[in-house]
């Protein structure tokens, strides 16, 4: 590791992100996935994907407000895990649930806006996960950045997907949507500048202190 301390954070994130998958597999072997396991797999993988996506979006604001550099370094990891769970979610849908029966899928999907929103979100995550990071970043940093702003579109679509598939209890999906919108607002340039103020002030104060101590 180039930076000391980074590996430690990363290990924590790996454990945090993989734990739900381990639990899912364990519950599967124990027959603990309810009377309708395919639905249970679908609900859990979807929720974990959205959780990780929200964490991905939270990294920049956390860095801005608290000046925590580690948050920026973990953003990509969260994003890749979000894509991982979204892939399981997608595969469970077309594979386990529909048995790759494309005719049946087509008949069912066309008029379901929640599936279209979810699929669009998945395609965006796929594109972001597939973009080679270091090389492309170096070659055209601006394009890479532009492309990766789409993660906000993916999160909004995923939240919409959650709301639209809800039958009766909208509280949780609306809370997720509110968090996603809030995280998006925090990236508006002028708000972002305000958000940076505390960490800047903190830095300046620390700087002053250390300089006064040296006198």
């Amino acid at each position: 590791m180039r930076r000391p301390g980074l590996a430690w954070f990363q290990i924590l994130v790996h454990i945090f992100a993989l734990a739900p998958l381990v639990r899912l597999l364990w519950d599967f072997t124990q027959g603990q996935l309810s009377a309708d396991p395919i639905r249970e797999i679908q609900l859990r993988t979807g929720r974990h994907a959205l959780d990780l996506l929200v964490l991905t979006l939270a990294c920049s604001p956390i860095y801005n407000v608290f000046g925590l550099k580690a948050a920026l370094q973990l953003r990509r990891l969260f994003g890749l895990y979000a894509f991982g769970y979204a892939s399981l979610h997608f595969l469970n849908f077309i594979g386990l649930d529909y048995g790759f029966d494309l005719a049946l899928i087509r008949a069912d999907v066309a008029d379901k806006r929640f599936i279209i929103a979810g699929f669009a979100a998945f395609l965006i995550l796929l594109a972001l996960a597939a973009t080679p990071i270091e090389g492309m970043k170096r070659r055209s940093s601006r394009n890479w950045r532009r492309l990766h702003r789409l993660v906000y579109a993916a999160a909004l679509l995923a939240a919409l997907h959650f709301v639209w598939q809800t039958k009766a209890d909208f509280l949780v999906p609306l809370l997720y949507s509110a968090v996603v919108v809030l995280l998006l607002i925090l990236r508006i340039p002028i708000i972002e500048q305000w958000a940076r103020l505390p960490s800047k002030w903190l830095k300046r104060r620390q700087g002053n202190q250390s300089s006064s101590q040296s006198h």
Partner: peptide, 17 residues
Amino acid sequence: HPRWSQTSERRIGQLER
């Protein structure tokens, strides 16, 4: 229906739709 398939169904206790 906007959320659920009405052309096919999952029979509880079996895997195929």
